[in-house]
Design a protein around this nucleic acid. Structure first.
Lengths: 245, 245
DNA sequence: GACAAATCATGACGCAGCGTCAACAATTGA
DNA sequence: TCAATTGTTGACGCTGCGTCATGATTTGTC
């Protein structure tokens, strides 16, 4: 019977299945394209069953974001342990952030959850999970800055904490990624290669803070592309798979 | 008659009236809170009449954004002509940008239009208007950078155009503003004063590019707060009025 | 001032999509 | 074997967008 053949499919990790189905829809057709009825019918379940797993549509988006942020965290952690020199580690994290943003099916989710319409309707539990992810990411990078201070590679300017110093890099990276993704035709404005442009700014900012070892931009670029390749290989599954599927 | 008393109200600038009504709703209750029926009933018009002015709900949001960007442009222009020294002018524009972002009823609109769900459904005409505003803003700031180059206050690094140099400042400013507005509790992460933090980064970046005249952070701060006060006074009407009303 | 043409206003209607819930089915446990 | 519990279903209520036939108002013309 039809009922039986569906029952054979696991009942356990349906939540993961839902998310797996929802992610590409959200990527390809946006928030409008994702409807509970559609999700239900494509899964061959009734709508009510979905609501046994998620209290509302917004919570599905947050759940996707948790998955994505988990990936971001892993990439950042991998990048931050791939060297012993704090400045190099920070640059490597920059490469991780670039790579993450290039995977639109992950990065775009972050834009959705910063939308108050979505954030506010999701469950507090899920909201908290996201904040934890964010906190852990900040923890990695701020810790790294503190290492640099301990080693005397970096002197924090009067009035800036390690977290606040990192916030600048977070802002410029995230800001440029948002603008690149949403500003229709940066190229028309004269910005042809935003990624490389922002690399240049981060490099200048690092030198501006006199974060040792000072290097030239060539060396900076070489570090970034090397780490970028390493990460791309390490996380190929999570990046490529989810694009095609 | 009831019909007459409403007719007495101007028939001409109803579009402006609609926007005036819509803005505070959008600010206070978000995109969900803004409904065509509500807008219509609060204006004492039928829904169909609204659709004589705007093809859809999204277009209203873009129209609001055009108004806001117009204000941003004026503030930037005022800031950029309030000194003859390019570096000071750029810092003043930074103050304008801070001030603009502090007016949530304007800044929040920008977040909405970067949402593809909204952008894509709006009319091409309105989309184009927005892009023009953006272009004009970039024009001011990039022109300023070019002035600096002409005066030998600034040497563009190999591979960066004036626009690309400006893009860095745009990204860090905008990024920090988005994060401040949407990251629930930056303070928990250790960022207590994002605005002043980003001032510090911009200052460091300017020095990093060796943009003359090099100054100390004290001087930078003083410039910013002076310009901030000047702008606040000049644009008091547009900032305060729209908050209360 | 009378009448036609053009313009504008109206709100009932069709439709899509969210979330609920009473009814029903399956599973568990004794 | 028969509760009791747990899981599934889809029709239903409701909100809100955008349309359009109908009717009102204005404009233009003689």
């Amino acid at each position: 019977m039809a009922t039986l053949t569906r029952k054979q499919r696991e009942l356990k990790d349906r939540e993961a299945q839902i998310l797996k189905l929802a992610r590409p829809i959200l990527l390809r057709e946006g928030y409008q394209g994702l409807s509970m009825e559609r999700l239900a019918s494509e899964m061959e379940y009734a709508k009510g069953t979905l609501y046994n797993h998620f209290p509302n549509k917004e919570d599905i988006v947050l759940a996707l974001a948790v998955e994505s942020l988990e990936l971001r965290f892993q990439m950042m952690e991998s990048a931050s342990t791939s060297s012993s020199c704090p400045r190099v580690r920070l640059v490597n994290i920059g490469a991780a952030s670039e790579l993450f943003a290039s995977a639109k099916e992950h990065f775009a989710i972050e834009a959705w959850i910063r939308n108050s319409t979505i954030w506010d309707k999701a469950s507090p539990e899920r909201q908290q999970l996201i904040q934890q992810c964010e906190g852990r990411c900040m923890g990695i990078v701020a810790g790294l800055a503190r290492d640099a201070v301990a080693r005397r590679d970096l002197v924090l300017p009067q009035g800036l904490s390690a977290e606040e110093l990192i916030f600048g890099f977070w802002s410029i990276t995230y800001g440029s990624q948002v603008l690149s993704a949403s500003s229709p035709s940066l190229a028309v404005l004269g910005i042809t290669n935003p990624v490389s442009t922002i690399r240049h700014h981060c490099y200048t900012l690092l030198n501006g803070f006199a974060w040792q070892p000072i290097m030239d931009f060539q060396a900076h670029e070489q570090l970034m592309s090397a780490e970028s390749n390493r990460l791309r290989a390490q996380f190929a599954d999570y990046l490529a798979n989810s694009v095609t599927h």
